[in-house]
């Protein structure tokens, strides 16, 4: 897997240096009221890996990788790990921004970050198997369907909670986050199955 991560890192650094710079800047900068910080955390965690999928597809790397001494698990898991590393990169700048420019890390900032990470993990868990099955070209359009579907689900759940007069507790947030982590672990297994069915 080291080879795959190193290759992805090289491609990311050479193709998307500017994007990495923008993610760092927008995650650090003071909040302008448009939630740009959280948007760029999500951007790094979702669109960076999707773009890497697309670059690999264009180079037909997957066809070669399938013939190299990588297990399907290596090929699939490396994508998830890279997505998590990209997310961690953005979170680092996000937290640094709070420490340096936004008066320190607050409980509220952590709740917002936790919510965005939960949503991000859920999107990765649902969307990555689609990408592994269809590839970036065909799968790209479905990203918006997944995001909108999850947004509707979150809005619906929030409305139900309000109707039942249940205020979101830290325990509920933690439960959602753990559920998203579990989904992601299950998603790796589903992606492996999808990848094995793909033809190059």
């Amino acid at each position: 897997m080291k080879a795959l991560l190193y290759k992805d890192f090289l491609v990311l650094w050479k193709q998307m240096k500017f994007v990495l710079f923008m993610v760092a800047i927008f995650c650090v900068m003071p909040d302008t009221g448009f939630s740009l910080n959280t948007f760029f955390v999500a951007y790094a965690g979702m669109l960076v890996p999707v773009t890497l999928f697309a670059y690999d597809e264009r180079a037909k790397w997957d066809a070669l990788a399938a013939m190299m001494p990588f297990t399907t698990w290596d090929l699939v898991l490396s994508r998830y790990v890279f997505a998590w590393l990209a997310t961690a990169y953005a979170v680092f700048w996000y937290l640094l921004g709070y420490i340096l420019l936004r008066g320190g890390i607050t409980g509220e900032s952590m709740v917002v970050l936790g919510a965005i990470l939960t949503l991000l993990l859920a999107i990765q868990a649902i969307y990555f198997p689609i990408l592994f099955r269809l590839g970036a070209e065909k799968g790209r359009m479905l990203l918006f369907v997944v995001i909108i579907g999850l947004m509707v689900l979150v809005a619906g759940a929030t409305a139900v909670l309000e109707k039942l007069a249940i205020s979101p507790s830290p325990l509920l947030f933690l439960g959602c986050f753990l559920a998203a982590v579990t989904m992601c672990i299950g998603s790796v297994k589903v992606s492996v199955k999808q990848y094995e069915q793909r033809t190059w």
Binding site: K7, L10, V11, A59, K60, W61, L64, M67, M68, P69
Partner: peptide
Amino acid sequence: KEDIGVVLDEACFPEVITPRELGKVMGYAY
């Protein structure tokens, strides 16, 4: 698969990578 060399009709390497960098990637792979 360690003992099998493969050459496809297109070389299939990432287009921004140089041979020197590719050597390092393959060093980790094989």
